[in-house]
């Protein structure tokens, strides 16, 4: 079994995207269960990220958690890249090996689009389930049972034929912390790097962006936003007065 986990460094925190840590944890748990069943075959957990060279720190963190191989597509641009470009680059890396299972976080914390996983699946022509909150590999490893989060507390119980792409929702597990011994070993571990020209032939050329960033704006206020002033006790009194005046307390 070969798994590939797509991870991203958050533009906000500089850390690994929270949902991606859940994706790595889920792969490591699947690996553990797989090995406990005593198969001869290995279960590998590889990670891939895209971004400037300093982003390799999140690959090291993934090694510290227990990941096997690390791939890094080095791009010059900092900041935001759109899902289509990301998914195209990830697909080019994923095609280099035949992965049975590809996991991503349900979305990035910074851009919150949740498109990379399903786009990657479509480019690779694989089935995809988004918002996964439970996984269980079938006994013959040919499929995986998952629960997909829907609205209003409902969950869809699905079985997907492998290879497949799953996007992982928070709450599915508690991501482990990297161990010290693994972190020390991670420093020496090789990360395989690619740049755009390694991934795309001259004929096809680099990925053409389909979305264009225009600007960042402050969201508009939807309510009055009256700010209470004064000491802590003053504010507590003012709140009581306002709520009492509205017959809410």
């Amino acid at each position: 079994m070969k798994s590939l986990i797509c991870i991203k460094q958050s533009n906000e925190s500089g850390e690994m995207n929270l949902f991606d840590t859940h994706a790595i944890e889920e792969a490591l748990k699947l690996k553990q269960k797989f090995e406990n069943r005593g198969y001869q075959e290995d279960f590998s957990v590889d990670v891939v990220t895209i971004g400037p060279s300093e982003n390799s720190k999140i690959i090291k963190r993934a090694f510290g958690m227990g990941a096997d191989k690390g791939y890094h597509v080095i791009t010059k641009e900092r900041g935001y890249s759109f899902s289509f470009e990301t998914a195209s680059r990830l697909a080019a890396v994923a095609k280099k090996e035949s992965y049975d299972l590809i996991l991503t976080g349900i979305m990035s914390q910074d851009l919150m689009a949740g498109q990379t996983g399903p786009m990657l699946a479509e480019i690779l022509n694989l089935p995809c389930v988004t918002g996964v909150v439970k996984t269980e590999l079938a006994a013959d490893n040919s499929s995986i049972k998952v629960e997909q989060e829907m609205e209003n507390g409902f969950r869809n119980g699905l079985e997907i034929i492998l290879p497949a792409v799953l996007t992982i929702q928070a709450g599915i597990n508690t991501p482990r912390y990297p161990t010290l011994s693994r972190m020390l070993a991670a420093g020496k571990k090789e990360i395989m790097t690619f740049n755009e020209t390694d991934l795309f032939s001259k004929k096809t050329g680099a990925v053409q962006a389909r979305e264009i960033f225009v600007s960042m704006e402050d969201p508009q206020k939807t309510r009055a936003g009256h700010l209470l002033q004064g000491s802590l006790a003053d504010k507590a009194k003012q709140l009581f007065t306002v709520l009492h005046g509205k017959a809410l307390i």
Partner: peptide, 18 residues
Amino acid sequence: RDFAPGLAISFNAASIAC
């Protein structure tokens, strides 16, 4: 959000979420 990004890929369309 489950089907729209894939539809955008097969239709060669831009895709803007949320």
